[in-house]
């Protein structure tokens, strides 16, 4: 479900870019609790300095980065949605807390939980016609969980717009508002560009880069556990409720 490939930087065995790939192509890389736990695990390994990764690329196998939660898991069990939300929050925080810079390669689509992952990354590469957004209010789910990291990237005004509007925006618009840091022309160019950027970052003096990311996390509110938990609780408060149940059932019908 998660593949990790190390690409040595300039032939140095001790300095690599770790490409962490969500690989559930048959489900457009839909997120399961296991996938999210694995993302946390990889990010924590790098954070603990185990391994040689000096930068991470978070990628999705196949044509689309990530279509969001695997909703089929929620069909018969009302406890899955709260579990997914809780693990998504943990994954986003693990990406943000990871010592080294994280670059997301978000080709073609980053929807709902997939889009939430982007806000935990330091850089996001997407393509001009990609579709990004949080259409989850249509499912009776609150995207409040994404608010605390999203506002750091795009500010409160755009956060309000993106989380209350279930519509999707293009990669070009996402770049304009700061949800993505860079937009390339085609989906095929996304991963190569993300690896190129991560390689550039991995070449930089390691301690300086780590110290700078740590300091930015400290000053911009990334470490505010209380706030992140409150956001998660706002989503959990209605998770598994009647509106969500009815709207999910309508999809399966």
């Amino acid at each position: 479900m998660i593949r990790v490939e190390h690409i040595p930087v300039d032939g140095d065995d001790q300095r690599s870019v770790a490409v962490v790939t969500i690989d559930r192509q048959e489900k457009r890389n839909a997120l399961t609790p296991d996938v999210l736990e694995n993302i946390v695990g990889v990010a924590k390994l790098v954070h603990a300095g185990q391994g040689k990764a000096h930068a991470i690329v978070l990628a999705g196998a196949g044509p689309t980065f990530c279509s969001g939660f695997d909703l089929s898991l929620c069909k018969d069990d009302p406890l899955v949605m709260p579990d997914l939300l809780t693990k998504l929050a943990a994954a986003v925080r693990a990406l943000r807390n990871c010592t080294v810079p994280v670059v997301a390669a978000a080709q073609r689509g980053a929807i709902a939980g997939g889009c939430a992952l982007l806000a935990g990354c330091d850089f996001v590469i997407t393509d001009a016609n990609a579709k990004l957004g949080y259409p989850v209010v249509r499912l009776g789910v609150s995207p409040a969980i994404s608010s605390t990291t999203l506002r750091l990237a795009i500010g409160d005004g755009h956060t309000r717009e993106r989380l209350l509007d279930p519509g999707l925006i293009s990669g070009a618009e996402a770049t304009r508002i700061g949800l993505a840091s860079e937009c390339v022309e085609t989906p095929e160019q996304v991963l190569p560009r993300a690896v190129e950027l991560a390689t550039t970052l991995a070449r930089k003096p390691h301690h300086a880069l780590v110290a700078t990311k740590r300091w930015l996390n400290e000053i911009d509110g990334s470490n505010d556990s209380q706030l992140h938990n409150a956001a998660l609780q706002a989503s959990l408060a209605i998770a598994g409720g009647e509106e969500e149940r009815q709207r999910l059932q309508a999809i399966w019908k």
Partner: peptide
């Protein structure tokens, strides 16, 4: 088109 409960909570 969003769920009223989800919109209000958000």
């Amino acid at each position: 088109s969003g769920g009223p409960v989800a919109l209000r909570a958000t």
